[in-house]
Nucleic acid binder design. Structure first.
Lengths: 182, 182
DNA sequence: CACTAAAAGCTATTGGTTTGCGTTTAGCCA
DNA sequence: TGGCTAAACGCAAACCAATAGCTTTTAGTG
């Protein structure tokens, strides 16, 4: 993988852009490697060599989209910060596009590197919230505890229990980990 | 879908058997629809029409394999029952074949029906354990609470955090939900 | 400025996937 | 029991995604 500005970087960028555009235009089902390659202005063999197959390419694009673009907002207390973050997290992840990205990220991921990256994103956001609360002098749970008690249940239900998720569920999970830290 | 003994049932059975045999013989990577169809004694078009593609077929087979074959053993107390079940659950699901089945089950599952079935299997097992404990007069948590506090963290880590799972983790999760029920 | 290795373009070929049509089978009602 | 209907399957041709071999371009280096 060359430095930004090199040909490799240009190809990667144009291919990723092609995936995003074509997904928006005609849906995920209609996507095919030759189609993406044509839109990106490269040959299919280039895509196959760099990504292996369509799933791995979609996984790469999905991880990019799941990267949070900013730190959680400071609302003055651990409870308020964590509740707001959890509600937004559930809202984004449980939406149809969010679910599609999660599936794509998990699917074309032979070694689990992309899935690990997604988990790291959530852990980083939680770290920010917890560190801020600790700076205020509040007692804070471990990041791992929050992952187990909030992130994991949300993701589990998104993946295995289609339907029946709302902001209230996220609030209850946060209340549970703050009021009864295991 | 016809009753057992009908042609549809015979075809489904022979195709599923072919998938299991060929997976064991030459690995999941080598599987193709024409290969499975030939082993099953049907034509590829039959498989494509019934299952859509290889992923959906593998998803069906994976769900079958994830079905528990017996109720959890009675060890005399809720804590012992739940701990033993969680340890076995983690052990089976975190193993390479278990992870492969989970991935397959999630993968070819457009409407989430197969994933929901997997979740239902775990909930049923937990229900048995909790009902038995309630029959003894023990105080028991909700099934949903156990799913959130034990099943979800295990599955999340299997899917998003490759590596670093052991029986001790399952024991700590069970202890957490029994000693500090949210 | 030449040199080397990695990456992309090009093309032929393979084989997985789709489709249309005829045939069989299972369920159903008289 | 016997015909009727619709769903499921077999068959075969056509399509197109996927792969591989080879050439050409490009980026980095002495």
């Amino acid at each position: 993988m060359a430095r930004p500005g090199g040909r490799s970087a240009r190809v990667q960028e144009s291919v990723h852009t092609a995936v995003r555009e074509l997904t928006a235009e005609m849906g995920r089902e209609a996507l095919t490697v030759p189609l993406v390659a044509a839109r990106a202005g490269v040959t299919p063999s280039t895509v196959y060599r760099r990504w292996g197959d369509l799933q791995e390419l979609l996984s790469d694009v999905a991880v990019e989209r799941l990267r949070p673009d900013s730190d959680p907002e400071d609302r003055g207390s651990l409870r308020a910060d964590l509740t707001a973050w959890a509600e937004q997290f559930l809202d984004e992840m449980a939406s149809p596009p969010g679910r599609a990205y999660i599936r794509d990220a998990l699917l074309g991921d032979p070694d689990g590197a992309n899935a690990g990256q997604c988990s790291a994103y959530a852990a980083e956001q939680i770290d920010v919230v917890l560190a801020r609360a600790a700076g205020r002098g509040e007692a804070v749970p471990d990041t791992e505890t929050v992952v187990d008690r909030v992130v994991a249940p949300v993701m589990y239900r998104i993946l295995f229990r289609p339907g029946g998720l709302d902001a209230g569920y996220a609030r209850r999970l946060v209340a549970g980990v703050l009021d009864a830290p295991g």
